[in-house]
């Protein structure tokens, strides 16, 4: 959606036009869901977060600052709701018990000649779960949702230096985690 169309739809939505808002929902809910899912890794919870995010957006639309794209504002709302959820303890215990490094996974990895790409991916995701909150947020927005550096800074109200530092620590931890598994495998 080009910025002009988007702004037009936002203006109509502020005036109470539900059809205009529906178009905004349809074009942005995919991103919102993807982001929520990257954080929570739960389908139902991600749907709830997306719904809550759009209701918030609708209620606060009159305060929209045209300087920013709707995307960054939405990402901010979804990120905050996702972090609230992760902190709330509502997240199923099963997930934390499954936390890396799970013995069964390492054993499986160790006994195979080559690391399956699917397994590698799931290891990366589990390593990402261990990051600090800021590192995790920056990593998910920048590396998984592939937002631009400027968009990440805008969404998180972070300086470029701060973002880079968090990104560095996140990537370092993930790379080191992967390397530890490689070493286990070689022994």
């Amino acid at each position: 959606m080009d910025p002009e169309t988007e702004l037009n739809l936002i203006r109509k939505s502020i005036d109470g036009d539900h059809q205009a808002f529906r178009q905004l929902v349809e074009s942005h809910q995919g991103l919102a869901y993807s982001l929520a899912y990257r954080f929570t890794r739960e389908e139902k919870e991600s749907e709830d977060i997306v719904q809550e995010a759009f209701v918030k957006l609708w209620k606060n639309l009159s305060r929209y600052n045209a300087q920013y794209r709707l995307k960054t504002w939405l990402c901010k709302i979804v990120t905050n709701l996702s972090l609230d959820y992760l902190k709330s303890g509502r997240k199923k215990k099963v997930m934390s018990e499954n936390n890396f490094p799970a013995k069964s996974m390492i054993e499986r990895v160790v006994h195979e000649d080559e690391l399956e790409s699917e397994e590698l991916k799931s290891i990366v995701l589990r390593l990402a779960e261990q990051l600090t909150e800021k590192q995790k947020v920056v990593f998910i927005l920048r590396d998984l949702e592939t937002l631009s550096s400027e968009e990440v800074c805008q969404t998180l109200e972070m300086t470029p230096g701060n973002m880079k530092s968090n990104l560095y620590h996140a990537r370092l931890k993930i790379k080191d985690g992967l390397q530890k598994i490689y070493k286990t495998k070689l022994i």
């Binding site: 995919g30 993807s34 991600s46 949702e145």
Partner: peptide, 16 residues
């Protein structure tokens, strides 16, 4: 490592 992460990023998550 970044290549591996890019592969994960390319797998789009879509609302079911």
């Amino acid at each position: 490592t970044q290549q591996l992460i890019n592969q994960i990023a390319e797998e789009k998550v879509i609302p079911p």
